[in-house]
């Protein structure tokens, strides 16, 4: 019998992984780049949120005291600073790893190597600037827990799950209904057809990298409620995001979401039995799924043909 108290933990993990996997999946399918600097975006956003929280925390506390408004304001400062930093870092990736090479031969391989280099360089710069010590972000959602159907849920878990649902809901609606969203989806589905429709890959890559950077920022702010910010804190979310994006079928947003939920539950269940088997079981599961369904979960969901 599965322990139901694992449910909030599993959904919490799924929420963070979904944010990372959807971003990686979107970047790959729309601009053909496997962005290995996404982990660096995560870490930079975490540090930006930490820096701004140090500046704003005393100001907010001196004005509002320890009230609900102060907590909400701190939450806003943390998430918005991480999002802005993530979006700005996305712009840097655009300028360094996309713009100079997107029309050159072997662009996918070149961009993979450049983003890997950006990732490594950023980790070293963060180590140089902030040292190797972990930094703790202020708790946005406070301490404590409540129960639903006798399942204990921590405030940070509930906050992470609800924030992710809201942010992903807003982003997916924007992708579905806005003009820019249709442009990005067209590019994800057929880059050549998009070019024939007057959609410029060079121009559309800017919002793609900025939005996915902002999503990495949100996941950094939310995950940092559970773990500490460090120069390498983006590495595990990057690996998880990449593998879940593959599991979901690269380029398939609903597939990535389902993949994130499956991996979240798998990790929670295996972790409750024996923590050291978590990575092992995750990769075995992904390998088995990809052997049986090479197009990933997205292949099962997709009832259209190319």
């Amino acid at each position: 019998m599965i322990d139901l108290s694992l449910l909030p933990y599993a959904l919490n993990l799924a929420a963070i992984y979904a944010l990372m996997a959807i971003s990686i999946s979107m970047i790959w399918s729309s601009i053909g780049m496997l962005n290995l600097a996404h982990g660096a975006t995560f870490a930079v956003s975490g540090y930006a949120a930490w820096n701004l929280s140090i500046i704003f925390k005393p100001i907010i506390l001196s004005i509002f005291g320890k009230t609900l408004i102060a907590k909400l304001l701190m939450g806003f400062v943390l998430i918005s600073s991480a999002m802005v930093a993530g979006a700005m870092f996305g712009l840097i990736i655009y300028l360094l790893a996309f713009l100079p090479i997107h029309d050159k031969p072997n662009y996918p391989v070149r961009s993979l190597i450049i983003t890997l280099a950006i990732n490594i360089a950023t980790i070293q710069i963060l180590l140089f600037m902030f040292g190797a010590r972990n930094k703790g972000l202020p708790k946005i959602f406070g301490f404590g827990k409540f129960e639903i159907f006798e399942i204990p849920i921590r405030y940070d878990q509930a906050g992470t799950i609800i924030s992710t649902i809201i942010i992903l809901g807003l982003m997916l609606s924007w992708l579905k209904f806005s003009r820019m969203g249709i442009e990005i989806r067209a590019m994800m589905q057929n880059p050549e057809g998009a070019a024939y429709s007057g959609i410029s890959r060079r121009t559309t890559a800017i919002p793609v990298l900025m939005i996915t950077g902002a999503l990495a920022g949100v996941s950094a702010a939310l995950l940092s409620q559970t773990i500490f910010v460090s120069p390498t804190s983006g590495s595990i979310p990057l690996i998880k995001g990449l593998t879940i994006a593959l599991l979901g079928g690269l380029g398939n947003v609903p597939g990535a979401m389902i993949g994130a939920v499956l991996i979240g539950f798998l990790e929670a269940i295996v972790g409750s039995i024996q923590q050291r088997y978590v990575m092992f079981s995750t990769f075995i599961f992904i390998i088995i799924v990809l052997i049986i369904r090479p197009r990933g979960i997205g292949g099962l969901l997709d009832d259209t043909r190319e």
Binding site: G32, H102, D103, Y107, R185, A186, Q189, N190, P191, E192, G193, A194, A195, Y196, S197, G198, I199, S200, R201, R202, T203, E306
Partner: peptide, 24 residues
């Protein structure tokens, strides 16, 4: 890959129905 300046040509007034449809 996908044309670097194709989108600009479409905006200049060249419209294409390519082979294989290039659908979404």
């Amino acid at each position: 890959g996908a044309g670097r300046r194709t989108a600009k040509l479409v905006k200049m007034g060249i419209s294409v129905a390519p082979q294989g449809d290039a659908i979404f």
